[in-house]
Each structure stands twice: as structure tokens, then as C-alpha cells.
Design a protein around this nucleic acid. Structure first.
Length: 103
DNA sequence: ATAATGACTGAAT
DNA sequence: AATTCAGCCATTA
């Protein structure tokens, strides 16, 4: 577990149920606003435990960002909808309604 | 130490 | 509004 990964998890763990945050958002909350890609790399590498709501992290366009050949992609949307997050006709989440700013 | 790889983004088209 | 491009960055080989 790298130092960077630990800081990422620290932020992701604070995202409330029914809300979503972008990779860049997590990066910003860590005080490293340009590390959006690094956040993705960390979530890919880290071993997910029960206390890590990884599914509440999506890309800036409000879309799920896991590559299409991944099983988790379908799962992520299901987990989000289960907590009340709605996807529009284009399969995108509205930031004004479900976005989390860190408070 | 180097290079390749994407769960990224903002600006330009 | 949708696509393209060029930086950015932690991981991994």
C-alpha cells in the first residue's frame, strides 16, 4: 500500500451514500488537483475491502469509467442505483443533484 | 531507471 | 453537445 493510495482511500471512504465524486474531485480533495489519473490507477491497484465505496467514484461527465470488458462495470451502476443515484437517458449522472463536494 | 498503460481532464474543434 | 488532443500521474512490467 503506497502513501498515495492510502490518501485516495481516505477520501473515497468519506463519500456519502447516494452521492458521487469524480476522479479529479478526489484528487482535489487530496490537495493534488492534477492527479485524477493517478486516482484511477490507485483504485485499480488497491485491494477493495467492505469499507471502501469505490463505486461512488465516476468520471467528470457523470459516466462510469470502468473499461467495458470489465464485469464490475455493470455492478457499479447497480450499486449506485441501489442507493438512489439516478442515471439519465444517456447513462449519465447529474452533478447538481448527486455530486459530492467534500462536505 | 525506463517505458508502456489507462477506473482522467480541460481546452479546442 | 460530441469528439479530439495533449498534458498529467501513479502503477506495473
Amino acid at each position: 500500500m503506497t502513501e498515495f493510495q492510502a490518501r485516495v482511500l481516505q477520501v473515497v471512504r468519506r463519500v456519502p451514500p447516494g452521492r458521487v465524486v469524480s476522479y479529479g474531485g478526489v484528487a482535489a480533495l487530496m490537495g493534488q488537483p492534477r492527479a485524477a489519473r493517478g486516482v484511477g490507477a490507485a483504485l485499480r491497484a488497491v485491494e477493495v475491502d467492505d469499507d471502501l465505496p469505490w463505486w461512488r467514484v465516476i468520471n467528470r461527465n457523470g459516466e462510469i469509467s470502468i473499461s467495458h470488458h470489465s464485469i464490475s462495470r455493470r455492478l457499479q451502476r447497480e450499486l449506485l442505483e441501489r442507493e438512489g443515484v439516478e442515471f439519465g437517458p444517456t447513462g449519465r449522472v447529474d452533478w447538481d443533484r448527486f455530486g459530492w463536494d467534500g462536505r
